[in-house]
Simulated scan of single mutants.
Amino acid sequence: MSARLREHPAPALLSPGAATALLEAYRPGTDRFLSSPRHTLLGRGTAAEIPHGTDPLAHRVRDVLDGLRRPDAPAPLVMGSIPFAPAAPPALAVPDMVHWAPALREDPLVALPVAAGPHRPDWRVREVPSPERYGQAVAAAVARMRAGEFDKVVLARTLELTSAREPDLPTMLRRLAQRDPSGYSFALPSGPGRTLVGASPELLVSRRGGVLTANPLAGSAPRSADLAEDVRRAAALLESAKDLHEHAVVATAVREALAPFCTRLEVPERPTLVRTAALWHLSTTVTGELSDPAVTALDLACALHPTPAVCGTPTETARAVIAESEPFDRGPYTGMVGWQDADGDGEWVVTIRCAEAEGRTLRLFAGAGVVAESTPEAETAETAAKFRTFLHAVGADL
């Protein structure tokens, strides 16, 4: 096993199976696992934590990482999650050791079947809010938008799953990663006694040297097991006026947030399609060249967060509607998860398709973008489709 692990920074490709070895090595507690289409990381132990405070988060991260720099040693990096609420404390730490491997999607071993755990949890499920209450919140938001109060809001709901046993998080993570190995899989502490685990399809922003990449997703449709129907749904999504409008709002917001940092910024005029195991998404890949090399990946991520894809527009009005409409605290959901090194490179992913585990309880999150053309039935169905990825991983059938 040790021969397959590699300390930061990431080098050339390692032996086949290295990414799966890191995935299988993950253990809840102080381990932090992240995979992306570029590479796989496993952080172990905690050398330092990023403190909560009033200074900008990117500055606090920079100060901690600069303080840990050592001559002739790899640049230290921070890993973790940042919550949706701006005043909430982050769950960011510098691991004692970071091991790297190639991307999971390049690993032939990731497709091997995941062994079933010794016990299948007998989940008790509580919907918060109920589908009926969620539909009422969507209808109320639509009425306010049609009256001209705001343009868009993302409303979420949760499933609270409770079992007699604590969930098997390593098996859950492996199933999530296997289901979408080209996405962004993660499992890491999100607070005292809590673990955030998920598989997001959406890159918020990455920085590699002087180049940035963002990949906003907005507008989605459920997949179908029937090939012809699946193709029809994908084609319909590309022509949906409602979804194209929703996506354009997000792409415009991303362009406006990133433009001040760039000498060049490329934003395609029309979105393309990306697929996960459960959904089709409208996608735009934004690329740019930074004008200031001191700007870090987290500087860019904080400038973007929250995008209209997870909050709405105008941002502050949408936040207020979310607070009025959602009977729960989002916590890390629709925040961001990722890593950044002391040189400023890193990747930050939008925290969706996720759950937070605490003891014997697992809370799943799913949201839908609500615009003036939305209907309660369609948005409730969209959140149900988004739950399926995680329900597959935990073995719960609703």
Results as ranks from 00 to 15, higher is better:
residue 283 S to Q: 10
residue 204 L to C: 11
residue 65 L to C: 07
residue 398 L to C: 10
residue 250 V to Q: 05
residue 52 H to E: 13
residue 224 S to Q: 08
residue 121 P to W: 02
residue 30 T to R: 07
residue 374 S to M: 05
residue 313 T to Q: 09
residue 153 V to T: 09
residue 243 D to P: 02
residue 270 R to G: 04
residue 247 H to G: 00
residue 130 S to P: 09
residue 342 A to C: 07
residue 273 L to H: 07
residue 234 A to H: 08
residue 354 C to S: 14
residue 135 G to M: 08
residue 80 G to P: 01
residue 199 A to K: 09
residue 229 E to S: 14
residue 207 R to F: 01
residue 166 E to S: 02
residue 127 E to L: 11
residue 211 V to H: 01
residue 35 S to A: 13
residue 34 L to T: 12
residue 142 V to R: 06
residue 220 S to C: 12
residue 387 F to T: 03
residue 69 R to W: 02
residue 247 H to T: 07
residue 71 P to Q: 12
residue 387 F to Y: 10
residue 271 P to Y: 08
residue 153 V to Q: 02
residue 145 M to P: 06
residue 20 T to M: 13
residue 63 D to K: 13
residue 123 W to F: 07
residue 34 L to F: 13
residue 379 E to I: 02
residue 73 A to K: 01
residue 381 A to W: 03
residue 341 D to F: 05
residue 292 D to C: 05
residue 317 T to V: 14
residue 3 A to F: 08
residue 120 R to D: 07
residue 374 S to P: 05
residue 108 P to A: 01
residue 252 T to R: 15
residue 327 P to S: 07
residue 256 E to V: 11
residue 14 L to Y: 14
residue 15 S to I: 15
residue 341 D to W: 06
residue 95 P to A: 07
residue 331 G to C: 06
residue 379 E to Y: 07
residue 128 V to S: 08
residue 71 P to S: 10
residue 319 R to W: 12
residue 373 E to G: 12
residue 285 T to S: 13
residue 1 M to H: 15
residue 234 A to L: 10
residue 288 G to V: 00
residue 122 D to R: 10
residue 311 C to Q: 12
residue 300 L to E: 08
residue 255 R to F: 03
residue 383 T to H: 04
residue 338 G to D: 04
residue 86 P to L: 12
residue 68 L to D: 00
residue 122 D to E: 15
residue 343 D to S: 15
residue 297 A to L: 04
residue 72 D to S: 15
residue 301 A to M: 07
residue 329 D to I: 15
residue 108 P to H: 02
residue 170 P to G: 05
residue 50 I to V: 15
residue 361 T to F: 00
residue 380 T to Y: 01
residue 236 A to I: 09
residue 313 T to M: 05
residue 108 P to R: 00
residue 229 E to H: 14
residue 28 P to S: 01
residue 313 T to R: 09
residue 105 R to M: 12
residue 284 T to R: 03
residue 145 M to S: 06
residue 226 D to S: 09
residue 3 A to L: 15
residue 35 S to H: 06
residue 41 L to H: 04
residue 168 D to P: 04
residue 17 G to W: 07
residue 123 W to C: 04
residue 302 C to V: 10
residue 368 A to P: 11
residue 235 A to P: 00
residue 141 A to M: 10
residue 52 H to G: 10
residue 255 R to H: 11
residue 83 P to H: 08
residue 254 V to S: 01
residue 238 L to A: 15
residue 64 V to G: 01
residue 294 A to G: 14
residue 19 A to P: 10
residue 44 R to S: 09
residue 96 D to T: 09
residue 33 F to S: 03
residue 244 L to H: 10
residue 209 G to H: 01
residue 256 E to H: 14
residue 102 P to Y: 02
residue 195 T to P: 00
residue 192 P to F: 04
residue 5 L to G: 14
residue 56 P to N: 02
residue 20 T to C: 15
residue 220 S to E: 01
residue 95 P to K: 07
residue 43 G to A: 03
residue 110 V to Y: 08
residue 378 A to T: 02
residue 115 A to E: 14
residue 381 A to S: 13
residue 77 L to C: 03
residue 125 V to R: 13
residue 231 V to N: 03
